[in-house]
Write a protein that binds this DNA or RNA. Structure first.
Length: 235
DNA sequence: ACCCAGGGTCATA
DNA sequence: TATGACCATGGG
């Protein structure tokens, strides 16, 4: 059974390996929110290109986005993939901000109401909403993404990778102090770790969490430099 | 020629 | 409640 100290040790091991992450990578809350939509099921590199295109055109502002035609917006964010959908989603998000008289008006609402308003936007699901709550509004809300699930399952913290979103979130938060900085850093570290080592085809050589890993959920025939657990060493 | 990437929605059973 | 199809570009 996992205890707070175990997850704390994982946090410290990741932090020691990858260093402070300082997420979310965006200049302000609007850019953060736009990035959250553009990054949906997409390599961050591609979302970044779309953001750069918007910035380069001087259109990454509320007024500009509100004035843009959806089809024009779609062309600009094309590199992020699913670009027609995402253009619609961004317009809907900008509309929500407008309904609240701007970013401040929206982001200062109490957490449960803000989460509900975000989830009511077509194209904003639990992960996107929670990213915004955590990284744009500074609320202590833990973000669950595919990486969180994969790493949690391989470590044995999660029994089922496919568990409902809120169950996964709870299995982490019950082991963590209620602190937006801790949630934000841990999520960022998990993303970094998933890219560096804990990929679908894991790269276990040099993995900072190897001693705790159960190596579950690895597709057969896709193991790379990845043997079974050999020691009981604590991380 | 595949597989994968910081999801969400909708139709179906 | 729980799957599966669909959305689309770009890199390994």
């Amino acid at each position: 059974m996992w205890h707070a100290e175990d997850l704390g040790a994982v946090y410290r091991a990741l932090h020691r390996t990858y260093g402070p992450q300082g997420w979310w990578p965006a200049e302000g809350p609007l850019e953060m929110m736009v990035g959250a939509v553009l990054a949906q099921a997409t390599a961050w590199r591609n979302a970044e290109r779309a953001i750069a295109a918007l910035k380069g055109a001087g259109l990454l502002s509320l007024d500009a986005l509100a004035g843009l035609h959806e089809t024009e917006l779609a062309e600009l964010i094309r590199p992020s993939g699913f670009y027609r959908q995402k253009a619609r989603r961004l317009k809907a998000l900008v509309a929500l901000i407008g309904e609240h008289g701007g970013l401040t008006g929206l982001l200062e609402r109490i957490t449960p109401e803000l989460r509900g308003r975000l989830l009511a936007v077509p194209g904003v699901g639990p992960e996107t909403a929670d990213c915004i709550l955590l990284y744009a509004a500074g609320r202590p809300v833990f973000v669950v993404d595919a990486y969180t699930r994969r790493i949690g399952a391989r470590l044995g913290l999660l029994a089922d990778v496919g568990a409902p979103y809120d169950d996964v979130a709870r299995s982490f938060t019950q082991l963590l102090p209620v602190d937006p900085d801790v949630y934000g850093e841990l999520h960022a570290l998990l993303v970094q770790h998933a890219k560096a080592h804990c990929r679908v085809r894991p790269v276990c050589t040099g993995c900072p969490l190897a001693a705790r890993c159960l190596r579950k959920g690895i597709p057969a025939g896709r193991r790379r430099a990845c043997s079974g657990r050999t020691s009981h060493a604590r991380v």
